[in-house]
Design a protein around this nucleic acid. Structure first.
Length: 513
RNA sequence: UCCUCCUUAGCUCAGUUGGUUAGAGCAUCUGACUGUUAAUCAGAGGGUCUCCCGUUCAAGUCGGGAAGGGGGAGCCA
């Protein structure tokens, strides 16, 4: 059926080889009769014929194959009864080998599983040299697995991490779709270098060997470049998102973002995925409400749809925590933590209130902070954010109304501020263990205030005239935020290093795979 | 970029005040066993102690440098 359709649709792509290939597939019933292990395991029904395909995790006792096909972190036990298969075949059932097994699904005779497949036929689809395959049926360190990132998806941990990542990504779209948001695609290549969100990767087709066309002053003449100007990889889709919000009311972006910062931490990547909703007719409080609802929704989705994966990750984390000294262990397990976040309100305080809490806390008085809090106006350090989230409130915190001096040009100036204490309608959401997971604000919709601010911060208005047009033609109060998708995945999976929640991490000095 | 720790078998790690042939568990291989759950039992193979330079009669061990990695900080999401 499938193949006929293919032939009818586009006969030009069919060659002798593809026909031979398709025939071979049909003869072997390779795809159409396969059952995924997840489907097979969710029901206790037994006594029916089935074909499964997957990769061998372990082969015990010359009889029992633990087979995984990535549909779930549970394995299917395949029984190859003694004496029914050639020794030559059994020798090839090594860890990592890919096989097709056909037989009867029966109630398991063993204790570890409800059903098992009693094989009548086993076919090796792909051998795996046991002496060379790096994954062994034993615990591996995350550092080691990071070095073989192309194979780590075949482990329980990374299988679960990336199934949860998928679930969260799906939930992102579901949440916004239900709310009538338009998924808006902002460009990956941008010309605006005025935003100041971070160092950018340059995009160019000009030669790097010194022969690039030059201006009279010796600088490179980007008018000769592909786009006729200097271009970069995007650091944020926000400004373009604002344009769309001024037409669709509610939009969101969800795509890759690039920062060329030399950041070497467990929570930064050079290429990461960001979710950026932008809403017309929203103020800061609406913005915070949406962000909180959003975070709870996607976490709830993962809890409801990826129980097995989260159970496994929770157990993994618990074992990891046992290795730590008592004082460094978290008070809640992963599942309790997620349930707590879903079922409790985030704490909401202003920057000014946070400064008072920090200034008066014992930790500060005993000078245990590396940077002591004395005066209003200083930026909060990681240690302060962690104190508020992990020690003082013990829950996610939404911090609002930061001093204008430490925030971006597009954030809305608060009205009626005390003298010398001008703030903006900014908000950060801080999560336990992760730190800043969301950064957002109500945007400055007043053209005069915005251009005044840009001037003060030396941002060239002519480069952003398209952006300022939104304020010239039907400006309106609006707000939005950016959420680092990998940090969300970190929070939900309990993985400590951001490089372990994106399939192929990019960071300084590393772009492998 | 800064601070700090680490680098010994395929993996995870021991390795004493510098001293003869560098060890263990797991993995791999061989054999036994056969309803196992990271099977078990017995045996075997497996090392440029990350690299370079130095100190010393002698360096896995001490000193200097480089590379790679972990954790923390800054930048932020």
């Amino acid at each position: 059926m499938q193949f006929n359709t293919l032939i009818e649709c586009n006969p030009s792509i069919i060659t002798v080889n593809t026909i031979a290939y398709i025939c071979s597939l049909k003869n072997r019933h390779m795809f159409n009769k396969r059952i995924k292990i997840k489907e097979l395991l969710v029901s206790d029904v037994a006594n029916y014929q089935a074909t499964v395909m997957g990769w061998v995790r372990t082969f015990r006792n010359n009889q029992f194959i633990a087979l995984n096909d990535g549909s779930t972190n549970s394995n299917l036990q395949i029984v190859a009864e003694l004496g029914k298969f050639d020794d030559a075949l059994l020798k090839r059932l090594t860890t990592g080998a890919c096989i097709k097994a056909t037989g009867e699904i029966i109630a398991s005779l063993g204790k570890g599983q409800k059903v098992e497949l009693k094989a009548t036929d086993i076919e090796i689809l792909g051998d795996s040299d046991a002496e060379k395959f790096p994954l062994q049926p034993k615990k591996h360190s995350l550092e080691f697995l990071r070095e073989i990132a192309h194979l780590r998806f075949r482990t329980n941990t990374f299988g679960s991490v990336f199934r949860v990542r998928h679930a969260l990504a799906f939930a992102v779209h579901e949440f916004f779709n239900k709310k009538g948001f338009v998924y808006f695609h902002t460009p990956i290549i941008t010309a605006s270098d005025a935003e100041g969100a971070g160092e950018m990767f340059r995009v160019t087709t000009l030669p790097m060997d010194g022969t690039a066309p030059k201006n009279e002053d010796g600088s490179i003449n980007y008018k000769e470049d592909f786009f006729g100007r200097s271009t970069n990889l995007t650091v944020s889709g926000q400004l373009e998102g604002e344009l769309a919000a001024m037409a669709f009311s509610d939009i969101y972006t969800f795509g890759p973002t690039f920062r060329a910062e030399n950041s070497n931490t467990t929570r930064h990547l050079a290429e990461f995925w960001m979710i950026e909703p932008e809403m017309a007719f929203h103020d800061l409080e609406d913005n915070a409400n949406l962000a909180e609802e959003f975070i709870k929704y996607v976490i709830k989705y993962a809890i409801d749809n990826n129980k097995d994966d989260l159970d496994f990750l929770a157990q993994r984390l618990e074992e990891e925590e046992k290795q730590k000294p008592q004082q460094d262990r978290s008070e809640m397990g992963l599942l309790d933590k997620l349930a707590f976040v879903v079922n409790n309100n985030f704490e909401r305080i202003t920057y000014s209130e946070a400064i008072e809490i920090l200034r008066d806390c014992n930790h500060n008085k005993k000078k245990k902070f590396q940077y002591l809090i004395n005066d209003w106006g200083v930026d909060l350090q990681s240690e302060h954010e962690r104190y508020l989230v992990e020690k003082h409130f013990k829950k996610p915190v939404i911090l609002t109304n930061y001093p204008a001096a430490i925030k971006s040009f597009y954030m809305r100036m608060d009205d009626n501020c005390a003298p010398g204490r001008q703030t903006v309608s900014a908000m950060d959401i801080l999560a336990p263990g992760i730190g800043e997971i969301v950064g957002g604000s109500q945007r400055e919709e007043r053209l005069d205030k915005l251009t005044e601010r840009m001037e003060a911060m030396h941002i060239p208005a002519e480069e952003l005239s398209w952006y300022l047009d939104t304020r010239r033609f039907g400006s309106c109060p609006h707000a939005g935020f950016g959420l680092g998708f990998e940090r969300l995945v970190q929070f939900v999976t309990g993985m400590g290093n951001i490089r372990d929640v994106i399939p192929f991490p990019r960071f300084p000095k590393s772009a492998e795979f």
